[in-house]
């Protein structure tokens, strides 16, 4: 058992544990915190996969930005505390069975057909090369994403704004 395997087990247990806590938490604030935990552990897994840039972005955007934004949102809106959830009902069992089946099928297929990654192309992308790709080949999606954010912002305001009469 080497260090890499140990780190991977640690991060994946944290990531899955965070997701389980997210589903089971009763208070919204606990949900946000466990989600941040999951994001952070995912960044660790990216680091193990030698995707340093992705890991840093994950920490900056998801673990940092999104989580803080969510906590702010919760603090500003003061959501109602819902009571403890009821025990499992029929449709929940059904969805559990379907989701488990789906998971098993995907796992089976993935493990039976390993994709061997090309080993020759190992390079660490510099910020410059990422920038060049982003603004040359992916200029349109980049611009569209900014409009997407604008639409999301305006949409949120339209839906949240109360009519003043």
């Amino acid at each position: 058992m080497n260090a890499e395997f140990f780190a991977f087990s640690l991060f994946s247990v944290f990531a899955i544990g965070g997701a389980v806590f997210f589903l089971n938490a009763i208070r919204v604030m606990h949900m946000a915190l466990s989600l941040a935990f999951t994001f952070f552990s995912l960044a660790g897994i990216y680091l193990l996969l030698q995707a340093e840039f992705l890991a840093v972005v994950q920490v900056l955007v998801y673990a940092g930005g999104i989580s803080i934004l969510m906590i702010f949102g919760i603090m500003l809106t003061k959501p109602e505390e819902s009571g403890a959830s009821k025990s499992f009902q029929l449709h929940q069992w059904l969805s559990l069975i379907v989701v488990t089946g789906f998971f098993l099928v995907i796992m089976l297929i993935i493990y039976q057909n390993p994709i061997f990654a090309p080993t020759v192309k190992v390079y660490s992308p510099s910020v410059q090369s990422i920038g060049t790709t982003l603004f040359k080949d992916y200029a349109i999606p980049f611009e569209l994403a900014s409009i997407l954010l604008l639409v999301a912002l305006i949409g949120a305001i339209v839906l949240a704004r109360k009519e003043q009469k």
Binding site: L144, G155, V158
Partner: peptide
Amino acid sequence: VMLFVSLELLSLSAYV
């Protein structure tokens, strides 16, 4: 990437 971003722009506007 462009397919997906365009599809989301269409969908997100439609949701609102």
